[in-house]
Simulated scan of single mutants.
Amino acid sequence: MQAEEIKALIESQLSDCQAAVEVQGSHIALAIVSPDFEGLSKVKRQQKVNAILFDAITSGAIHAIDRIDARAPSEI
Results as ranks from 00 to 15, higher is better:
11 E>G: 11
56 A>F: 07
34 S>L: 11
3 A>W: 00
44 K>D: 15
3 A>M: 07
24 Q>H: 08
74 S>G: 13
8 A>Q: 06
11 E>M: 06
30 L>Y: 06
9 L>A: 09
72 A>K: 01
49 V>R: 00
40 L>M: 12
36 D>V: 11
65 I>A: 04
37 F>G: 01
45 R>M: 15
62 I>L: 12
57 I>E: 06
26 S>Q: 08
67 R>L: 12
58 T>I: 15
35 P>T: 09
15 S>W: 02
19 A>R: 02
44 K>T: 14
50 N>G: 04
75 E>N: 01
48 K>M: 15
47 Q>K: 12
62 I>R: 00
33 V>H: 10
36 D>E: 15
62 I>C: 05
61 A>M: 07
66 D>M: 04
45 R>G: 06
33 V>W: 02
45 R>C: 12
27 H>M: 11
39 G>M: 11
33 V>E: 07
70 A>D: 05
51 A>N: 12
26 S>I: 14
52 I>E: 02
37 F>N: 02
49 V>K: 01
62 I>E: 08
72 A>D: 00
15 S>R: 09
21 V>I: 15
11 E>R: 12
11 E>N: 05
53 L>V: 04
22 E>R: 02
74 S>C: 11
18 Q>S: 11
48 K>L: 15
37 F>S: 00
32 I>W: 01
50 N>M: 15
6 I>R: 01
52 I>G: 04
75 E>I: 07
62 I>G: 07
4 E>N: 05
20 A>T: 13
36 D>I: 09
11 E>P: 11
42 K>N: 14
35 P>W: 10
47 Q>C: 11
40 L>R: 03
1 M>H: 00
3 A>H: 03
72 A>F: 01
9 L>D: 03
31 A>Y: 00
27 H>F: 11
28 I>C: 06
46 Q>T: 03
70 A>N: 05
60 G>K: 00
52 I>S: 05
44 K>V: 14
38 E>M: 14
34 S>V: 13
24 Q>L: 12
